[in-house]
């Protein structure tokens, strides 16, 4: 108590964009508020009723006025639309070289994992100046990943992956809030984003317990779940080889095609019969309940890692 903050910090590349749009909206709003309030006060005083017998003149027509106050506001709002849409579009297009981080939300905590294997709960350390891309899902209800200082927010929905990205511009410690009401301890589902100088970040990354990389964890899980029995690298198994699959276009037995992205891999693990690869039988059992959301994300990472390598990656384990 005591401080009266009026404006949030700007700590991402989006923050100034959003704030500039805000200034435009504020300018338009202040103008019309002053106009309407001023007109009401002026008319109310200037034309106050002086006698009970007054009968004002009736004004007829006002077509010019009607057109003016339809067209001018419409023009101003189209600027708001276009400008806002531009920012929104940018927010939906993460750069390809972004640092990838996985987020799994549950009642009432944030679980975050770096590709190198570091895990965090309700805290996220990221390097200054790099674009950060989050792939997010929920284990239970809908949550929402909200960092006010970055001006970004994205719902985290069970059963699917959502993504968001941002590029921090200022080192520091920023609030992470769950913005979608998610039950009893919704207001406790908060955390901190630590934006660190690249050198500090590298030191932080090296320190503490560092597990195997996400792809390696995925490889281990792949082994444990015996996925390799059917998904053989040389394509001799009952199921398609996963080498080079990520990012490719997969032909389906239903006749269509699908781009093999995170969502497709996830679906193929949890609901294998939803899309059958052309030339294969629906023989895979579902892994729903057998593998956690974090496990699925690790498997996805492993399958991604197969794309870059030549065949026979499975043999290594």
């Amino acid at each position: 108590m005591g401080r009266l903050p009026l404006f949030p910090e700007q700590a991402s590349t989006f923050a100034p964009d959003v704030d500039h749009l805000l200034y435009y909206l504020l300018a338009v709003s202040v103008f019309f508020t002053v106009l309407i309030f001023g007109a009401i006060f002026y008319f109310a005083i200037r034309y106050r009723r002086r006698s009970d017998q007054e009968l004002p003149h009736v004004q007829h027509g006002g077509m010019v006025l009607e057109i003016l106050w339809t067209v001018i506001p419409f023009g101003l709002t189209m600027v708001m639309f276009t400008w806002g849409a531009k920012i929104y579009f940018d927010e939906s297009r993460p750069p390809v070289d972004a640092v990838q981080i996985n987020v799994v939300a549950k009642q009432w905590m944030w679980k975050l994992q770096h590709m190198e294997g570091k895990r965090e709960i309700n805290e996220l350390h990221i390097p200054l100046g790099r674009a950060i891309r989050l792939t997010m899902t929920s284990e239970d209800v809908i949550h929402s990943f909200f960092v006010p200082a970055f001006r970004t927010k994205q719902d985290v929905v069970p059963g699917k992956y959502s993504t968001t990205w941002f590029q921090p511009t200022k080192a520091g410690k920023y609030h992470l809030f769950c913005a979608e009401y998610c039950g009893t301890k919704h207001s406790g589902m908060i955390g901190w984003i630590y934006v660190m100088e690249p050198q500090d970040y590298a030191n932080w990354m090296r320190g503490g317990a560092t597990g195997a990389s996400l792809a390696d964890e995925g490889a281990k899980l792949f082994q444990d779940l015996a996925c390799g029995n059917c998904h053989k690298a040389d394509n001799s198994g009952r199921c398609p080889s996963l080498v080079g699959v990520f990012g490719s276009t997969v032909k389906l037995s239903s006749g269509g095609t699908v781009k093999a992205d995170e969502a497709y891999i996830r679906e193929s693990i949890l609901q294998p019969n939803a899309k059958i690869v052309f030339g294969y039988q629906p023989v895979m059992p579902t892994f729903q309940g057998l593998v956690t959301e974090e496990g699925v994300l690790q498997l996805v990472e492993y399958i991604k890692s197969l794309g870059a390598k030549p065949a026979a990656a499975e043999g290594a384990h």
Binding site: V18, L25, T33, I36, F81, T152, E180
Partner: peptide
């Protein structure tokens, strides 16, 4: 008037991403 004008804020995608659910 104020309610309507602030409606323009939340209708704007770039602003709404930040202010929705706040």
């Amino acid at each position: 008037t104020i309610g309507g004008l602030t409606g323009l804020f939340v209708a704007s995608l770039g602003i709404d991403v930040h202010v929705t659910d706040t």
